[in-house]
Structure formats: C-alpha cells, structure tokens
Amino acid sequence: MSKEIITNNAPLLEVKDLKQYFPIKTGLFQKTPLKAVDGVSFSINPGETLGLVGESGCGKTTVGRSILRLYNPTGGEVFFKGEKVDAKSIGHMRKEMQMVFQDPYSSLNPRMTVEDIIGEPLDVHKLYQNKKERREKILDLMELVGLNAEHATRYAHEFSGGQRQRIGIARALATNPKFIVCDEAVSALDVSIQAQVVNMFEELQEKLGVAYLFIAHDLLVVHHISDRIAVMYLGRVVEIADADELNNNPVHPYTQSLLSAVPYPDPIKAKQRQRIVLEGDVPSPLHMPEGCAFRTRCRYATERCAKECPSLTDRGNGHQVACWNK
C-alpha cells in the first residue's frame, strides 16, 4: 500500500537543468553557441497537463524536442518514470513518449494513407500479430479521435486541418503512451476547430490518463487546458505556477505583460483594460544580455539584474518565480 502511494506521488517526467545549445557559424572558423534552452527544470505528474508558453524563439519547442531526444541535449538530465532518458533507453521509451506536431500539413506524409500513418508506430514496435489485428487497432484509434472509419484508405491531403490534427493525435496514441508533447498542436487551427481538438485532448486525458506537455503561445487556450503553466523567456523558465494562480496573480514582470497583452474577445473589457506594452524586441539568443535575460525590456530592472541571473524560487504553493525584484 505504502509503495503504491510512493509511485503515485513520483513525477512521471522530471527535467533537471536541461540545456540545449546549437553551434552557429558566426565567422569563417568561429562558432557561437545559440543557447536555445539554458537550464530548464520542471516535472510533470502522471495524468497532468503542464502548459509551456512563451514567444517565438524562446526555446519552448526545443524543450519538447530535447525531452524526446530529437536533439542531443548539451547538458542536464531527463528522467521518465524514474529512469534516465539517454540515447540507449530512449529506444524502448519511444512507445510511451509521443508527440503531436504543430503543422497539420507537414506532419503527415502526403504519400501515405491514413491507415498507414496511424499504423506506422504499430509497425515499428511490431504491436500486432497479423494484418487483421493491425486493422482493428487502427480503426479503434480512428474511432477514439472521432474519425470516420471509411476514411482509412484516404490520403492525408484530402482532409481539413482539424481532421489532419486528429490523424496526428491517433498516430501519437497508437502505442498507448503515458506522456505526449503537444507542440503548438492547436495553433494552426481555426477557432471553432481548435475548441474541438482541445476538448478531445481533455477527453483523452480522462479516458487514458496521459500527461501532456502542452506547448503553445495562446495563453487563453493554455490556461484552459493546463493544470500548471510554465512561462519561458529566452531559454529559461521565468515562472511556474498553477494555471489559475498564474492567471490571477502573475508575479514576474514578463508574465504580467504577457497576460495583459492577450487579446481578449470582449469589446468592453478589452477597451477598459490597461495593457502593459513592452518596449522593444526580444534580444537575439546569440547575443543574450548578461544576467537576467529580460532586464532589457523590464520596468523594474536594477543593477543586480545585469550582474546575476535569478533562479526560480518558491513563493508558496509551488508558485516559482525567477526575479530579483518581485
């Protein structure tokens, strides 16, 4: 009994000080590391959704890909079910860690039928005895994501964006994973379809108990789907908190301005609201400011921010913030 409690409390995925640098040619023989992800730590519990938000270029997609070892991390460790994820162990973990991609157009091979796309993970891991079993499994998956079984023999390009995303989700679910990285999985969809897919993610979580790392830039959607939210800025996590807590009580100045900038679909509230408009642009990750990366755009920046980089500190109830002044 006690053992079970321990395993229940253990996080499904633990990311510790993950670093991912890409060498960029800056001269004939000179290479500068582009610090896409620079020391990110978080954990995800079984059946939980962690939202990861940030602007383009902040490294949120890279975090997802590094966890799944699509890149070779420069530093840090990732543990899945307590086991370290490395080049060797990832082989058998691929079955349990999956990904749903952003672009419903380029994430499905145009020369394959829906059946073969969904069946690919089954083929790779040899999860069936005969053709009949394969077909049954595929049809079950299609039903699970709300696709019509008649469409199994069609090609991906015949479907609309929302249906294509369903195909991508069915593919990710084929091996019965416990953890799925959703990389901007609803960003390319129209609002009405986006809601369908968001609902489906939630239903699948209730049914199958999968955990999500939900990467997106749309704060409204992330707030809706996530249990907890992490905010990234230039390769670092600046704030992690429960979704509601973060939304009602943002602490980091970046989170504050991000939340205030979200276009709100309500004319009166939108016009009354005071936006905290950030000055300037995001600095290039090749020339990151010393100290806190956000200080160049921060209203509260002090001398200390230029010297030392703040790390995440707990402000109670698991609300972690990386800021000297707040």
Binding site: Q102, L108, E120, P121, V124
Partner: peptide, 16 residues
C-alpha cells in the same frame, strides 16, 4: 518536414 520527425518519435530507424 514534421512527418520525418514524427517517424523518428515513433521510433523508426533511418532505413525505414
């Protein structure tokens, strides 16, 4: 293309 990444995530080898 993302479908090549997707195949990698599925565990497919280079040959496949």
């Amino acid at each position: 293309n993302e479908y090549v990444l997707a195949a990698k995530v599925s565990g497919a080898k280079s040959g496949r």
